[in-house]
Structures are given as C-alpha cells and as structure tokens.
Amino acid sequence: NYPLQLALSPLIGAIAAGNCAIVKPSGEAPRTAVALQELIDECFEEEYIAVTDADRETTELLLQERFDYIFYTGGVEYGRHVMQAASRHLTPVTLELGGKSPCIVDDDADLKAAARRIVWGKFLNCGQTCVAPDYLMVHRKVQDKLTEHICDEITRQYGENPQQSPDYPRIVNARHFDRLSALLSHGTILCGGTSDPADRYMAPTLLTDIPLQSPLLTDEIFGPILPVLPFDDIDDCVEYINDREKPLALYYFTRSKKRARYMIQHTTSGGACINDTIVQTANGNLPFGGIGNSGMGAYHGRESFETFSHRRSIVDSSLHLYPNFKFPPYADKLKWLKRLMK
C-alpha cells in the first residue's frame, strides 16, 4: 500500500510540527523498507528521525514504549491492537485503516466517463489501494451497458494483455496473491479472471452473481477484483451501505446534484467523491482520514501539521493591573461583575 509514500507523508507533518520520530516501515515490502532506511539515514541523525526494522516483532517492542503520538496505517484488526497498546499510556492515535468502499452508478450517470474513472481508480496499483472502489453497485437499467464499457475500458487502458502493460503492476507478495486467487471462483467472470502465480500477475477482473456471504462482500479485497451488484432503488444502496461498517471512501456517479446531495446526506464515510474516484485524496487542502471501522483522525496538507501538534493555551497576565473585584470578599462587587459580563 504505497509503502514509501505512506511512511514519508505523515513524517513530513511530524517534522514540520517540530517532532522527533521513529518510522516503522511496512513488512510487506522489505526492499522498500531498506531503501527508506538508507534515505532517512542520509538526511537525519538517528536521535531526530530513526527507522526501525520492518518485522512485526519490532512493532510489538515499539508499542510497549511511551510516545506522545502514534500514527498507524494498515489493517483494521491490527489497528485495534495498536489502539489498545496506546491506551495503556493514554497515547493519542491516528489510525488510517480501510474497509469496503462502495462505488454507486445511478441510471442517469455518464456511463463512459464512469467506466473510465472506475477502471482507473480500481485497478490503480493493481487494486492495492486503501481507497479503491471495493465493490460496484449499478442500477439494473444500465448494468449491462456499464459493465461492457468497463471491460472495453480495461482494454483501452492496459491493452489486450494487461500482463504486458508497463502501467499494470503486480500483487505485492505470494501470500496476498494466493488470497486473491481463492476469490476468483466466488462469482461469474464478466472479464479478466486470468492469473500467473510465477509473475504474481492477476488480470483486472469483473465478477457478478456474488453470494452474499462471500468474502468479496464481507472483507476488504485489496486487489484487482471488482464485484458487481445490481440495484433497483437508490434507497436500497443507502440501506446496504449503512448496514455495514463505515467505509473509508464512497463514490457516486450521477448527473443530478440533488441525487448526489441525497447520497452524501444519508450515508457516512471517511471521504467521498462525486463522478470520479480516488481524487479526493490528492487535494492537499482536504483532510484525509476514516471514520468508525475505517479509522480515526486525519492528515494531508495543513491537517498533518495539526495532527502532530498540541494546541497549548497560554495566558500572560500583566503585573500592572490589579482587578481587585475578582478576589474575595465579593460583597458589593456582584453588581460590577454583572455589568462586565453583559
């Protein structure tokens, strides 16, 4: 999950706010962790910014220590563990987690634009993006047209054979590849569905006819598989989303500002985007963060500085003014206090 950027981006905010920091890189990308350590060691003395080993044992040792602040990006379950460890010292935390981010396409949407932007947002980094559209809800009236456009758009962006595309990456490791491979049989393949274990390649894939209890609909996919769920009434989508954990992102495609406003007002998510995907995270003027199961706290831009800062209220009282009415005894002073309070 972008192990370099997700380490450096919050670190910039921490440094800007005047902090020393310990960076614990992702163990899912060990070579990136080594490169990150070399980079930071060249720029900072260890007593200011230190980089630890990437293994989980190091994380457990770190969580036993007392910090002023902990910032964690990762999965929901380990996020709970981090928060529990932080609570022992009453250490505040920011948790950037993930979840099931819905993408809804209504019957009045621009289907070609929706297809292009959904393909880009979903298959960016081979679907290994915390704010990627996790499942697609499409109005039954336009389901066939939209899925056709999406399959065509996959070919347009990545070619007839995405495995040969220089713009299409690979699954991060064999463990995640095996996890994703097991999901390919949980529905009817509309396009894609091919894979190569030796290359850790998995094609951009659309699936339909998904069983409701499938992990595709209960767990974060974090890969290039997009389940398609038809709907007949937009309130069915709202109910489906609200019956589940709050998502990190929500995407809605419609030409109607009224419909867009209705969707935003009747759902909750960390962030949202109308008629596009992912771009809400790229605006440095907007805070980025989750809510509920998808995380707590926010960063990006000035929000990163605020996250790693403590607002300390300070009053410097003059020694030359002696407002005696604030000291007891208060007899005959109440009327003056009341005038001052008006």
Rank of each mutant, 00 (worst) to 15 (best):
L183W: 09
V315W: 09
P169G: 12
A272C: 15
Q64V: 07
A29Q: 09
V76H: 12
I221N: 01
D235R: 13
T267F: 00
K338M: 12
R302C: 01
D178G: 02
L286S: 03
S317F: 15
A282R: 07
D178T: 14
S313Y: 02
N125V: 10
V51R: 01
D233V: 13
N324R: 14
A86V: 04
S269Q: 08
Y168W: 04
L229R: 11
E46N: 13
T218L: 14
L36S: 03
F44D: 13
F71Q: 07
L111F: 08
V172K: 05
A21H: 00
T147N: 02
V82S: 06
S313E: 08
A114F: 07
G75Y: 00
P247Q: 05
C103K: 05
E45P: 00
I225E: 05
T277C: 15
D232W: 02
C237M: 06
H310G: 08
Y69Q: 11
P92E: 10
L248S: 06
I118S: 04
L216E: 04
H89C: 06
R179F: 06
D219P: 02
L97T: 01
Q128W: 03
C273K: 05
F231C: 10
R56V: 15
I150N: 06
S256C: 11
V23Y: 03
P215N: 00
Y251M: 10
D332W: 11
S101L: 05
T52K: 00
H89Y: 14
F222S: 09
T277I: 10
Q280E: 10
L226M: 12
I49L: 08
F71T: 08
E42R: 13
I15R: 04
S294G: 07
C237I: 10
G79V: 02
L180P: 02
G192E: 06
K112Q: 15
A7L: 08
D316S: 13
G284P: 11
F44S: 12
K335H: 13
E42F: 07
D232F: 02
T155N: 06
L8Q: 08
S9L: 14
I189Q: 11
L136W: 05
V238S: 03
T91F: 00
Y158L: 13
Y69G: 04
P162V: 03
Y252L: 14
D332N: 14
F253G: 09
Q163Y: 00
C126S: 15
R31A: 13
Q5R: 05
P92C: 10
R170Y: 01
D199Y: 00
K246F: 02
L4C: 12
S304H: 02
E57G: 09
D316N: 14
Y299M: 13
G295T: 04
R261I: 09
E239I: 08
K122C: 04
A14G: 04
T73V: 06
R117L: 14
L146Y: 05
S317W: 13
E28V: 14
E306A: 14
T205R: 07
S304N: 05
R302E: 15
